[in-house]
């Protein structure tokens, strides 16, 4: 089966630093793929490259077999590939509901009267799934860190044709209850057909959510397989603990 997301020799340089180096990655449709690696290994840069925040220096990104390298982030998002950020990028002075609806309506071409009721209903369902519906009219800036992370994640599902979601450290700094809710949301949306790439340092969560895990170090892929397989890989142990000189 053709992978839904594929990177081919994807490289990004910042001056003399090679942040992502000839990275090859293939994610199957319906998968929740884990992406782990020590700090500075290039995981977030890889997400920035796939989602269009950075342009690749060389190499290609294929989404449903089509090259999307160099596309703008909004074009990629509208094509069905969403991403979240480690530090949630919300619109603090706007209400939780407005944060949900903004992606849907901030398009000069839309007929708001026609779309509004359906979009509001969908937003309400997603907020209920994330247990944020009691806060729907509150400004986003008053939410806790975990609630902000949740809101950012469910906001992505407002894009109708979402098929891939790149989650950058969704569990960072959130409490156990919110973490469980995030995992529940991911599982529900996976069953609805969304493919996930999950970047996380929370090994227990990655082990629970992901059947396959890719390990990056120094901008390149060094291992791939089940969590047990990569955990036993000497290269991975070296990358995390420091290899012999």
């Amino acid at each position: 089966m053709e992978p839904i997301i594929e990177t081919r020799n994807l490289t990004r340089r910042f001056g003399g630093l090679v942040a992502v180096n000839e990275m090859n990655l293939a994610i199957e449709r319906g998968e929740v793929r884990g992406l782990i690696g020590p700090n500075g290994s290039g995981k977030t840069t890889l997400i920035n490259l796939i989602s269009g925040v950075y342009e690749p220096t060389s190499g290609d990104v294929l989404f449903n077999g089509k090259s999307i390298a160099g596309w703008s982030p909004n074009r990629i998002a509208n094509y069905g590939l969403l991403r979240s950020f480690q530090v949630p990028r919300l619109f603090g002075s706007m209400s939780v509901m407005e944060n949900m609806l903004i992606a849907r309506f901030a398009d000069f071409r839309l007929d708001y009267r026609k779309d509004y009721d359906g979009a509001t209903e969908k937003a309400q369902q997603l907020l209920e799934m994330a247990e944020l519906d009691p806060l729907r009219d509150k400004p986003a800036k008053i939410l806790s860190g975990g609630q902000k992370a949740l809101l950012q994640i469910v906001r992505g599902f407002m894009v109708d044709n979402i098929s891939v979601y790149l989650l950058d450290e969704p569990f960072a700094g959130v409490n156990v209850v919110v973490k469980e809710t995030i995992m529940k949301v991911i599982e529900q949306m996976r069953q609805a057909g969304v493919t996930f790439l999950l970047v996380s340092h929370e090994m227990a969560s990655v082990r629970r959510m992901c059947s396959r895990v890719t390990v990056m170090a120094q901008g390149a892929r060094i291992a791939e397989g089940s969590m047990e397989e990569v955990a036993a890989n000497p290269q991975v142990i070296d990358a995390y603990l420091g290899g012999k000189k």
């Binding site: 989602s51 703008s72 909004n74 002075s93 706007m94 407005e98 903004i102 992606a103 839309l110």
Partner: peptide, 24 residues
């Protein structure tokens, strides 16, 4: 909603782009 998009863009340019809004 266009006004909301202006407000959202003033708060987070990257955030609106990755939500699918054409910032240009």
């Amino acid at each position: 909603w266009v006004g909301m998009a202006f407000k959202a863009s003033s708060q987070n340019r990257v955030g609106v782009q990755t939500a699918g809004i054409n910032i240009l």
